[in-house]
Nucleic acid binder design. Structure first.
Lengths: 216, 216
DNA sequence: CCCTTTTCACCTAGGTGGTAAGAT
DNA sequence: ATCTTACCACCTAGGTGAAAAGGG
């Protein structure tokens, strides 16, 4: 079984209509004390930082075989065949035609995979390395989404069958989970100001934008 | 086989007499805009930061079975039964009696263990999570060393025998490596100023103490 | 006197949304 | 009009040696 962590935060976002930022650009690197250079144009370490999700998708697992190997992964499926736009005057999302051509379907393997059931169950499993991009040509293995489209994150537990030549990813070795409260709209900039405010209020990395005191 | 990375840097340190800092205290945490609080006295995330090694112990592996599981680990053995002190006037280390009672012998497992040979060989294996302490009562699983004593880091590759009830850590499943150029003296503060200068010149985290330009 | 501990400024590394300018 | 990008100040998180203070 899998229990979603931070469920109340996810629900708070979901009531407003969760938005997740997607970006295209790679990382920009500042040289000592002067201008800005595009990473990759120099001999700097490989960039990658697209955008993470917030809240982070985290689950607490139970009921696994402690001694068996499991691979954990996530993917994202379109919630419908529509494209959306945000109507500021009514503060609401409106359907705006058919979906753009689907982005390449990708999966994100949890970087600790494969690992024993005991290890996965020992503590909360966090997908904080998962990054979103709207770059259809992304070659960093990030999740590719279309901006202004709605998505449902899915979480999969794959039992690693120790028998040789067992059908890879056989159906009976799969368990999948979809938490409706984690649905979101992919955007390149926040549309709903209440989403922005909730992100600022709840994401530690956005403390610089807070007006008032932190809650204890 | 295992090849030590950054060999020339290790040798440069070794010619001067490598020193590694060992620390007892936990991490100190600063509250928003005011005083300083000891981590652990508050509800902050668990501290731990003792001191890392610099240079970091890194190896490039080859000749492993790509499909077999291996555990990688390190330990540290006393190089002799002596305690030392540093004579500033002659800029040299002098024996100063017998060794203190030996610290609890601990090993550091590479956190990616166990993993397939193919994964270990794919890139350089870095022990940058390894931390040193002089706290004999350390309960964070760090490596415990006596200050003013000399040590030889050792690196071990353990083949994970898939047969049940195979003797755990059987001798024939062990391969060990000792690189003499990685010997060092454990200290609580640097003694040889030339070691300090070389650390400042070569450790990116010490850039704040550099006088002149970085080398290209 | 010699060694250890504490506190600090200064880094690396990278995750935030804001803002203004650019693109379509 | 709508979306995208570049750049920024401001954070989190944590790895440096210096310097001062502490301890036997």
């Amino acid at each position: 079984a899998a229990r979603l962590e931070m469920g109340s935060l996810w629900e708070e976002f979901n009531r407003l209509g969760t938005e997740m930022i997607v970006t295209k650009a790679g990382r920009w690197v500042r040289e000592r004390g002067q201008g800005v250079l595009r990473a990759g144009g120099t001999s700097f370490p490989p960039p990658s930082p697209r955008r993470r999700m917030f809240p982070t998708f985290q689950v607490k697992l139970s009921g696994l075989d402690p001694l068996a190997d499991y691979v954990l992964l996530m993917d994202f499926i379109p919630l419908d065949d529509k494209r959306y736009r945000y109507a500021f005057h009514s503060s609401s999302w409106l359907a705006a035609g058919r979906a753009d051509p689907a982005a390449p379907g990708r999966v994100h393997f949890h970087p600790d995979s494969p690992a024993k059931g005991a290890q996965w169950m020992r503590q909360i499993v966090s997908f904080d390395k998962l990054k979103l991009t709207n770059n259809l040509l992304d070659d960093n293995g990030h999740i590719i989404l279309n901006s202004m489209h709605r998505y449902q994150p899915r979480f999969h537990i794959v039992f690693v069958d120790p028998r040789r030549d067992s059908e890879r990813f056989a159906h009976q070795n799969f368990k999948s989970f979809s938490f409706p409260e984690t649905q979101f709209m992919a955007v390149t900039a926040y549309q709903n100001h209440r989403i922005t405010q909730l992100k600022i209020a709840s994401n530690p990395f956005a403390k610089g934008f807070r007006d008032c005191d932190p809650e204890p």
